[in-house]
Structures are given as structure tokens and as C-alpha cells.
Design a protein around this nucleic acid. Structure first.
Length: 846
RNA sequence: GCCCCCGUAGCCCAAUGGCAGAGGCAUACCCCUUAAAAGGGUCGAGGUGCGGGUUCGAAUCCCGCCGGGGGCACCA
């Protein structure tokens, strides 16, 4: 209370009561009850709807698009959601406070296997489980206080959404970017469906962990390889905005390599066969030729005498799981095909083998083998007693003797016109020679494979294609979209190796849209990563009927300014989404080429050093944490635990301590609110506290912008302590600086602890919502100290401290430092060198 | 095998070329209290994984090693 006896509301209504009653009320008033705040403000926010993005074209504010990777509705929200969405919310709320027009949408990635498995178990429809879970999560998101614009809400399993997923598929189909082909594919025996390469991790199904096997199947693919170079090139746009780790993972995955295509004539075959090599310089060292056993070429050229052996080998290879196939210490296997290839540079006859260490879907499915300089070729040569010829003198021992291939640089030998050259020149020269003769050229290859998108499961987006005996693959006409799922439930969904859709005869059998003849719908559904490849575009107007998204609104809102989500999608979703964006760009539908300008990967929430799991029994339930400590304390704990990308070990943090801090902050706001009214002239406030307030605002602003939220919270804690001290043993609660501190605290705290901040803001005499109060601005004049401590070092050791003006000149400071008696005691004669970093440091080198 | 990231107090973490310590947990102690709780406050502790180097000055930059984590890996 002010020395002039100024009246606060608290003072007024406690008048006439005795001291002990007043103390009780005061305690009551100051009691921090997070659960009560959640009820009170949850209701009020529903009415206020403070996070609705402005759709007004006349709105001239700068836009910001904050996107969280949307949720899969597997059940209620868990600790991981709390972490990820808590981080995204800090960014979104900060931007709202800064006055940007912010889009922060919410939706669900609601197609997918778990719903189907639950439906089989409960003899129900996957939609029942899915939409029930969505409602649960929606309620939890609201309780958690996430600043979503709920008008953007979408679910990828709604027909109104997947209609457009199908529409996009058809556009890809028209452009030749969606096509069907046969070949060996990854098959998950547990989930009973094929998988994309990206969904196989270490030979296991990324979802369920089962060992993946290979099957020969005809499937739909997206031609992502056509965009390989652009997916790589455009990463320069993302540098600085994305974690380096994710960029390097994507680079690895795309796997660009430079080399040459070389044509080899196969005896008895008209067309030459092309191979890809990164070491064309070693062409003279090629001593045999290898074809992938599952490549059509092998089948074609195998001699009659070797056919039986080849067929047996191929069957054996097909049976291998990825885990067996990829095991690094696996013995080389293969079979001679009874044919010879001719080395184009020296005319040598080289035996042609089939071996599974050559992959049919990389390069051309065939290689020239140079055992001396490639370890794999050498292993094979030694296993089958094939010749080894050194063509690069590397100074290492003979690979034929040691079994260690020499892949390094050196002088070329046994290589005709290349003799004497080094590796780089030899590569250049041999490519010239081959180009002149028309038997080779420089090329680039990628490790990336086309995206296999068919899935033999029910709860996904049907592929809008009709197979007609006469017309082939016929797209479902746009006006007939969506192709909705038939009503299958329970046992009808049980996996049986073909899509459950195939058993819905009424649904499958249709007239061909082209010729009207009998035809069948494609019975596979799309990989759910297709659904999530474009959802961020639909958010700008989820009810839009004129196309998958409103092109004009996407122009206004796109691209995403900040994307937040787990690193587990480093190659999956993020690569696919980037691909979609580029195709849509080429279609003229979006004007940017990268969807996510900045990416933040939050860490995981673990417990006692391990991922939470049922089997370990170390799970922590989000709902229970909230019941025990309140939403704000849980959010604060997540944010304060450490840098956002680090894992949080729940055993190392203390939500109880977070709650304690919030109660402290709350009391500061309550005390300030009781002692003064809004509109105080801060300039008349206590200068020392004001400096702390403005320094804190300045630092917190920078820290939030650089995503160092944990440090920002630490600064808020300091501010709270400083304000507490000012109230208790400083200028008192009524000082305008205390109000200034409390108001700044309320606004800054609203990013992390919205309920506490809102109640505090109200107690400070303001109208809700604090979320739109506006970010405080630090006054430059209050950031400079009156005096700073300058450290004076002699030979790097601190010998004196000087109180100086922050504006002191270098010369003045040097003179001052040299004049110091303490310093003089360590000097004999003139110093050799004096380094001055005004105003904080002087280092004297004697 | 190749590539990337990280090692700071008992613990979580600040400090990105300038006094090693902002914040928190835990511990100990003090004030408040009849007492406890709640609340308020104070202290201690490491010389930055190890070894070199650059520099007036290194947790920070460079090299090597040790430890931990991650990615790619029969991709020609």
C-alpha cells in the first residue's frame, strides 16, 4: 500500500474486520488453486475465443503460421503431446502477443492401423474408436490451454477431407507421378501390408517392429525420385531454419552420388547393358560382371545350362528377410549365368554372375565388378575364385593377397591411356574417352526410391482408380469423388493379405467410367503419410469446396513459419510433405517450394533414463500429473526442464517446484493488484526494480525468439524474486515499478502458464484475456546501468575491479586501469600490451 | 566402416572468445510458527571428460583421444 494511503479494492472490502479475519481473507485471496483457475478460465476462454485467426483481407498485420505436427488419435493425450504442444504454444502465444495475425490450427491424422485393430477386437467400426478418441483429445487440448484456432479443425478420415486426397492423387496420376509397377516390395507379416522404404527401419516395420520380408507385388508408387535433385538442392533454403541433424538425415536418405554410366556388350544380346559406377577410373580393373537376381535382365540372359541353378538361387534370395539380407557379415552368394560381357575399353570377356549384393532398384541393377578396389567385389571374387587385377597403385598391399580392397587414390596402372594419372584426372579422362565412343557418360544417381503408397488395409483413403479389362487403369472422374469406404466392421477387417475392401463385392464391382463395361475398383488404400503430406494447406479453410485448399488463402498464410514435431519424422513425413509441396508448386497451386521455413524437434519425455512403456511400468500419466499439479505447472515443468530439443527425464524434474514458483508469481501479481490500479505512471517507480523489469523483458524477448525457453523461464523467476523483494523489503507493493513488474510478468508468463497469468492479469485490474495484452517493450534507457564493474587483469589474472560508466572510452579506461595501485603492484615497468574491451575488461600483459 | 551431435556442481542446466554460475532440484542451516505445513531467506560444493595447440585471454576456436547419443551402411 502506498504511503499516501491510496485505496485498493482489497483494502476497501476488508475494512471493519478484525485483524485475524483480515489475515484469513488475505490468505484465502492469495491461495493458489490451479484446478479452480482451470475451471474458471476454461469457461471464459470458450466465450472469448482469443485465438481466432483474422480472415480479413484488409488486416494489414504481418501473418505468422505456427503448426504442430497433428495428432494421431490413439487415445488420450500423453506426456509427449504435452511437451510438443506446450512448446508450439509458446511460439504461437508469443506471436499473438507481438501483434501478428497468427494461424495456429488443430486437426487429427485420423486414418491408420490402430483404429482398425481396435475395431476388429471390439467388433466395431474404426470410425467409432477414432472419433471417440478425437473428442477425448479435443477436450484435453482445451484443458491444456493450447492456443488453437478451433475453427480450423479437420480430420483426415472425414470424407470431406479425403475427397481431396483422392483428387490430388488423380492430379499426380495425370502427371505420371503416380504409377503402378511390379517388383519385390517390403511386406510386414504382422500388419499384413506392404511398406515404403522409409517405413522399414533396420529391416523391421517402423510401426510394429516385425521383421519385414520381400514379396513380389504390383503396387502404386509416387515418383518422388523425379524430385530427388530438387529435394536435395532446396535444402539450402532450410539451412539455419531446420536442425542440422534433420538436414543431414535427409541428405543421407536421398543419397546423391556422382559417377558414370558405362555400356557393356553382352555376347549374344543386341542391346548393350548399362551399368552405373562411381569409379569409372577403375574400368580396366573390371574382371567380372554382376546382375541383381531379381532384375529382368538376369532372367533374360541366363544360359540354358545355368537356368536351373539360377532359378533355385533366385527363389532362395526371395525368401530372405531384410534382416538376413542386410547382415553385414553375410557370406557372398551368387550363381554364374553362363554368359559373358565385353569390357568396352579393352575388349576382355568377363563372366556374368547373378548375386544378391547387387540391388535391382539402384542404378541399372547391374554392375561391373572391380575386386581390387571394391571390398564387396573382392569378397565375391574370393568366394568364387575370380581374378583380381590392381589398376590403382595406392601403396597398400595387394588386395588379392590380403583380402582388403584398396579404395584410395594413387597412380593408375594396367589401364592403357589412363596409366600414370591420379584418380580425379583418370575419372575425367575415361569419361571423355567413353563419351567420344558413345559407350558411356557422366551421371548422377540417388539412393532414394519411389514412394510405395498402396496399403492392403481398410482404414485409409481409397485409391480412386477403376481397373477395366479393356481400358486398363481408369481414374474415377472428379465429380464422382469422394470414393467413400464401404461400411465394413469387426471381423470383416481382419488382415488376410489382401485389402479388406476386396471382400466388399458391391463396392468393388462398378461400371468402367470410360467404356461402361464391367470393372473393379482398386481395393488398396493409401499410406496415411499421403493424408498428412498436404494437411497444412487445408487448414487455411478446412471447409473449402472449390479444391483441396483455397489457393488465395494459402498465398496469404503460407509457408509455415514454425513447424514443431518429433524427430521421428525426419525423413518420413517431412520428405513426403516437401515432395508434395514441390509438385503443387509445379501445378501452380502454391507459390513456395518449401512448406516449413523453420523446424523445431522437441525431445521425448522419458522416465528414469528410459522411454516410458507399459512393460517397464515406468509410464507417467498426463492426466494424473495435471490433477496433482495443475496444467500450468506441468507446462512450466516441460518448458523449464531444458532446451526444447533435449529429452526430459521426468525423474529429474519437479512439477511440485514449478507449482511453487507459479504460486510465488501469483502472489506477486495479487499483491501488486491489491496495492495499485492500472494506469500507474511507471516512470515514477523504483528505478532499481524498473531496470530489472526492462532488462528481463529485453532478455526474455531474445530468448523466446531463439527458442531458449528454459532460460526465459529462469529470467521470469528472477523477476519474480526481485518483485517479491521490492514488495517485502523495498519500496512496497504500491510502487508503480512493482505493478510494472507484475504486469510484465503476467504477459510473459502467459506463454507458458496461461491460467495463472490470466488470473494474475485480472487481479491486476485488467480485462481478459492476457493472451492479447501485448508484449512489453523494453526501454533502451533502462537497459544501461549507471555503473558497471570493470575487471582489470594482469596476465589474465583478475587484480582489480573498477566501477566505471558504461560509456567510458577505451583510452580513459586504459588510463584508469594503469593508474590502479593494485595493478601497479604487479607491474614492473611499462606493459608490453594492454587489451581494452570497454567497459567490462582490461587485460594488461606485463 | 562413413557422417553428425553432445560431455560444465550430487542432479537438470546457464554462460558461444573476456571475472566459470543465471535459474531450478536435492542437501544443510536461518527467519516466521505453540508446533508442523505453507511461506521467506542463506550457505556450501566443480575449474568445464582427457591431452595438446591457437590467443593477451578458451567451457567456447583447432587437432588427437576417451565416454555417451544419433543417422547411413552390400547403394556399385
Amino acid at each position: 500500500m502506498g504511503p499516501d494511503g491510496s485505496r485498493s479494492s482489497a483494502q476497501t472490502y476488508t475494512e471493519g474486520r478484525n485483524v485475524s479475519e483480515r489475515a484469513d481473507m488475505r490468505r484465502e485471496e492469495q491461495h493458489y488453486d490451479p484446478q479452480a483457475l482451470q475451471v474458471k478460465w476454461g469457461r471464459r476462454w470458450e466465450e472469448l475465443d482469443p485465438f481466432r485467426a483474422a480472415d480479413d483481407p484488409a488486416d494489414t498485420r504481418e501473418k505468422r503460421y505456427m503448426l504442430d505436427m497433428f495428432s494421431y488419435p490413439s487415445g488420450d493425450l500423453h506426456m509427449g503431446h504435452a511437451e510438443a504442444f506446450g512448446i508450439g504454444d509458446v511460439v504461437a502465444r508469443y506471436w499473438v502477443q507481438k501483434g501478428y495475425n497468427v494461424l495456429h490450427p488443430v486437426g487429427w491424422d485420423s486414418f491408420g492401423l490402430p483404429a482398425e485393430n481396435a475395431a476388429i477386437k471390439r467388433n466395431a467400426h474404426p470410425a467409432e474408436w477414432t472419433y471417440a478418441n478425437i473428442e477425448t483429445q479435443a477436450a484435453s487440448f482445451k484443458r491444456y490451454g493450447v492456443s488453437f484456432d478451433w475453427s480450423t479443425r479437420l480430420h483426415t478420415s472425414d470424407a470431406s477431407y479425403y475427397r481431396w486426397t483422392q483428387w490430388l492423387f488423380l492430379r499426380f496420376f495425370e502427371r505420371g507421378l503416380a504409377y503402378r509397377k511390379g517388383g519385390l516390395v517390403n511386406w510386414c507379416p504382422n500388419d499384413q501390408t506392404v511398406l515404403a522404404n522409409e517405413q522399414v527401419v533396420g529391416g523391421r516395420c517402423e510401426r510394429c517392429g516385425a521383421e519385414v520380408v520381400r514379396r513380389e507385388l504390383t503396387q502404386w508408387y509416387f515418383k518422388i525420385t523425379e524430385y530427388a535433385d530438387r529435394l536435395l538442392e532446396d535444402m539450402t533454403q532450410l539451412e539455419g531454419g531446420w536442425p542440422e541433424r534433420v538436414l543431414s538425415m535427409q541428405r543421407n536418405w536421398i543419397g546423391r552420388s556422382e559417377g558414370a554410366d558405362v555400356d557393356f556388350v553382352i555376347e549374344g544380346r543386341d542391346e548393350p547393358v548399362t551399368v552405373y559406377t562411381t569409379r569409372p577410373d577403375t574400368l580396366y580393373g573390371a574382371t567380372f560382371f554382376v546382375v541383381a537376381p531379381d532384375a529382368p535382365l538376369a532372367e533374360e540372359i541366363v544360359s540354358d545350362g545355368q537356368r536351373a541353378a539360377f532359378e533355385a538361387y533366385r527363389a532362395e534370395v526371395a525368401k530372405l528377410s531384410d534382416i538376413d539380407r542386410l547382415s553385414t557379415d553375410k557370406e557372398k552368394t551368387g550363381v554364374f549365368l553362363g554368359r559373358y560381357a565385353i569390357n568396352p575399353v579393352n575388349g576382355e570377356r568377363m563372366p556374368v554372375w547373378a548375386a544378391d549384393y547387387v540391388l535391382s532398384d539402384y542404378g541399372h541393377g547391374a554392375i561391373m565388378a572391380v575386386p581390387a578396389h571394391d571390398q564387396r567385389d573382392l569378397d565375391f571374387a574370393r568366394a568364387f575364385d575370380l581374378p583380381v587385377r590392381v589398376v590403382v597403385h595406392t601403396g597398400m598391399a595387394d588386395p588379392g593377397e590380403t583380402g582388403v580392397a584398396t579404395s584410395g587414390d594413387g597412380e593408375m596402372v594396367n589401364s592403357g591411356p589412363l596409366d600414370g594419372l591420379d584418380k580425379t584426372s583418370a575419372i575425367r579422362r575415361i569419361i571423355e574417352i567413353l563419351s567420344e565412343r558413345g559407350t558411356g557418360k557422366a551421371t548422377v544417381n540417388f539412393r532414394l526410391r519411389d514412394w510405395l503408397l498402396s496399403r492392403q488395409r481398410f482404414w485409409g483413403c481409397p485409391i480412386p482408380i477403376i481397373h477395366c479389362v479393356d481400358c486398363g487403369e481408369v481414374p474415377v472422374p472428379d465429380e464422382q469423388l469422394p470414393v467413400t469406404l464401404p461400411d465394413l466392421r469387426g471381423e470383416a477387417l481382419a488382415p488376410k493379405g489382401v485389402s479388406p475392401l476386396a471382400s466388399a463385392a458391391d463396392w468393388v464391382e462398378v461400371a468402367c467410367p470410360k467404356c461402361g463395361g464391367p470393372a473393379r475398383r482398386d481395393t488398396d488404400t493409401m499410406d496415411t503419410f499421403v493424408d498428412s503430406s498436404w494437411y497444412y494447406l487445408r487448414y487455411v479453410d478446412p471447409d473449402y469446396e472449390g479444391g483441396p485448399f483455397d489457393v488465395e488463402k494459402v498465398r496469404q498464410w503460407g509457408p509455415i513459419d514454425q513447424y514443431v514435431g518429433g524427430v521421428e519424422h525426419a525423413i518420413l513425413h517431412l520428405l513426403y510433405s516437401r515432395f508434395f509441396t514441390k509438385v503443387l508448386h509445379d501445378m501452380g497451386m502454391v507459390d513456395f517450394t518449401e512448406p516449413f521455413t523453420r523446424l523445431l524437434n522437441q525431445g521425448q519425455v522419458i522416465n528414469q533414463g528410459k522411454a516410458m512403456s507399459k512393460s517397464l511400468g515406468n509410464g507417467v500419466d498426463l492426466g494424473q500429473q495435471i490433477d496433482a499439479f495443475g496444467v500450468d505447472a506441468v507446462r512450466l515443468t516441460m518448458i523449464f526442464a531444458g532446451p526444447p530439443e533435449d529429452d526430459i527425464d521426468w525423474a529429474d524434474v519437479s512439477p511440485a517446484a514449478s507449482q511453487k514458483f507459479l504460486a510465488r508469481a501469483f502472489r506477486v501479481m495479487t499483491d501488486a493488484g491489491a496495492a495499485s490500479a492500472p494506469g500507474a505512471d511507471f516512470a515514477t517507480g523504483d528505478l532499481e526494480l524498473r531496470r530489472i523489469v526492462h532488462r528481463t523483458v529485453d532478455e526474455v524477448t531474445k530468448l523466446v525468439e531463439t527458442h531458449r525457453f528454459n532460460v526465459a523461464v529462469a529470467r521470469m523467476m528472477e523477476l519474480t524474486s526481485a518483485a517479491r523483494k521490492a514488495i517485502d523489503s523495498g519500496p512496497g507493493a504500491a510502487d508503480p515499478a512493482v505493478r510494472e513488474a507484475a504486469e510484465a510478468l503476467a504477459v510473459m508468463l502467459s506463454l507458458v502458464a496461461p491460467y495463472t497469468a490470466e488470473e494474475g492479469w485480472e487481479r491486476l485490474g485488467h480485462q481478459a484475456s492476457v493472451a492479447r495484452a501485448g508484449w512489453p517493450v523494453a526501454e533502451a534507457g533502462l537497459l544501461v546501468e549507471e555503473a558497471v564493474t570493470c575487471v582489470v587483469q594482469v596476465a589474465g589474472k583478475v587484480r582489480d575491479r573498477l566501477e566505471v560508466s558504461p560509456e567510458i572510452s577505451e583510452d580513459d579506461l586504459r588510463a584508469l586501469a594503469l593508474a590502479s595501485e593494485k595493478v601497479q603492484g604487479f607491474l614492473s615497468g611499462a606493459p608490453r600490451k594492454v587489451i581494452v574491451r570497454a567497459p567490462k575488461l582490461v587485460n594488461i600483459v606485463p
